[in-house]
């Protein structure tokens, strides 16, 4: 499923809404999650999962082609943990 198919499904279930409003609604949900993480916050969606930010320490990396050592700066990466209900559903429970 891609974003436009998700929008389509929700638009079909909500015939009173304009397609462009459904697009804005779906877009807002995903933008809010990114914004929250960009501000260092977590987003916990019970039953679905939680988005959080993990810090990766600076380290000495290596260019795999040349073997040369390179400094890799500290960075922050997005992380998703599946919620219990969804995990159970994936396994037919």
């Amino acid at each position: 499923m891609i974003k436009s198919e998700l929008i389509q499904k929700i638009a079909e279930e909500n015939p009173h809404l304009y397609q462009r409003d459904v697009e804005r609604i779906v877009g807002t949900v995903f933008d809010e999650i990114i914004e929250a993480m960009a501000s260092g916050n977590r987003v916990e969606l019970r039953g679905f999962g939680a988005f959080s930010v993990k810090q990766r320490e600076a380290r000495l990396g290596r260019n795999p082609r040349t073997g040369e050592a390179v400094d890799v700066e500290e960075k922050h990466v997005p992380f998703f943990k599946t919620g219990k209900l969804l995990r159970d559903r994936l396994n037919g429970k």
Partner: peptide, 27 residues
């Protein structure tokens, strides 16, 4: 509507389908 977004994504995943949200990420 927020609930519907999560529900449709979950349902697709439970059927084994991949969910690809451009400029967000892929489940």
């Amino acid at each position: 509507l927020v609930e519907d977004v999560l529900k449709h994504m979950s349902d697709a995943l439970v059927t084994g389908e991949q969910v690809k949200i451009s400029s967000f990420g892929t489940f």
